[in-house]
Simulated assay, not measured.
Amino acid sequence: MAFQQTIKNKVSFTGIGLHSGADTTITLRPAEAGTGIIFHRTDLAPAVSIEATAENVVNTRLSTTIGKHGAVVATIEHLMAALRGCGIDNAHIDINGPEVPIMDGSATHFMEAIRKAGTATLSKSRKFLVIKKPITIIEGDKKISVIPSRYFKVTFDMSFNHPAVPSQTKHLVFDEETFSGEYAPARTFGFLAEVEMLKANGLARGGSLENAVVIGDNGVINEEGLRYDDEFVRHKILDSVGDLALLGHYFFGHVKACKSGHDLNHKLVMEILKRTDCWKLVEFTTKETSSVFTLPLPELAWQEA
């Protein structure tokens, strides 16, 4: 069967929060099977534990924030994408502030450290959510849908009304190596004209050219330029992987997004959870572990969970 995984050893990160501007340290610890991903606000007395689930999302403006009992953890999407990319089902995350560090604006630092910490296979099987019927959400010119697929896929169409940002489309068939090498390094981005407005509204206080791609009137102002010609849409897919991880299960389905963001990603996850007639949970009778979600369904024996 495909078994759940956790990290093998503790690993810590320290950095600045993109929006809060606060220095924060987080520590990932191993967790038992069935725990899921849980954030613990250790700076509060008593500490508050917040499960990384769609039901606990309290804000989706420019990032994804979860909260419980008045405590929040913001900008979790890059770390969640890294955990998903490394095949981690269960982990405790101690954090001494309200926002996950932004690091360099990508998921690479998180993935590299998690891989260095190692993974441990647990005794409980992993359940997969398999999409059976399409689900679509449309808001104006924004759209996101999920349709049945033998793989986990994300197709993203990105378009901004800005001369320096061309329309971009990218298609990901998810597996750890592809995500790690081609999507995790893609950095968050923003427009120079919006920076002062964001800071006036208490956002982007920790933003800099060291942790974000900044776009001016004539193009990218970062001295090193872009890591990929289509880095913007790659980062949109990275964000989508992190937001979709709040579904609570690895899943088989093809997500198609057009001008989507954290808010629409979250609404799709909530709609999937509500529409129980559109999916089923399955367990695989294979000896594969974390790589099983990249294999085509017909090549695996499965049964309803």
Rank of each mutant, 00 (worst) to 15 (best):
K280G: 10
S290E: 14
K259P: 01
S260F: 03
N265K: 04
H254W: 12
Y250L: 09
V269T: 01
E283A: 10
F293I: 14
T294S: 15
E283I: 09
L268Q: 07
L273G: 03
G261T: 00
E299A: 11
E271H: 07
L268A: 03
L297T: 08
T286R: 00
E283W: 00
M270K: 15
T276H: 10
T294A: 15
F252K: 13
L268R: 00
K287C: 11
G253L: 10
A257G: 06
L297A: 06
K280W: 03
T286V: 08
N265T: 07
V292T: 15
L273K: 13
S260V: 04
F252W: 05
N265S: 07
H266Y: 04
D263Y: 07
K280F: 04
C258R: 14
T276Y: 02
G261N: 09
D277H: 06
F284K: 02
L273P: 06
G248D: 08
C258F: 02
F252I: 03
T294R: 13
D277V: 02
V292N: 12
A257P: 05
S291K: 15
S290H: 12
S260L: 05
T289G: 12
F284D: 04
E299V: 08
H262W: 00
C258V: 12
P298Q: 10
K259N: 05
N265G: 00
S290G: 06
L297W: 06
L273D: 05
L273E: 08
M270G: 02
G253P: 08
F284L: 15
V292P: 05
L300G: 04
T276D: 11
V269L: 11
K287R: 09
H249W: 14
G253V: 07
E299T: 12
L246I: 04
H266A: 01
L297V: 05
V269S: 04
R275D: 05
D263T: 10
T276Q: 14
K256N: 14
D263E: 11
S260I: 02
H254S: 07
L246P: 02
R275Q: 14
K259A: 03
V255T: 02
P298T: 08
K274V: 01
K287Y: 04
L295M: 15
L281H: 01
G248A: 12
H266L: 04
T294W: 07
R275F: 02
G248L: 09
M270R: 13
A257L: 09
K267M: 10
E288F: 13
T286I: 05
T276A: 14
K287P: 04
K280Q: 15
S291G: 09
H254Q: 10
L300F: 03
F251D: 07
V255Y: 01
T294M: 11
K256F: 00
F251G: 01
L264K: 08
T286G: 02
L264S: 01
K287G: 15
M270N: 13
L268H: 03
V292S: 13
W279V: 02
C258K: 15
L297M: 11
V269H: 03
C258Y: 06
K287E: 15
L297G: 06
G248K: 12
V282Q: 01
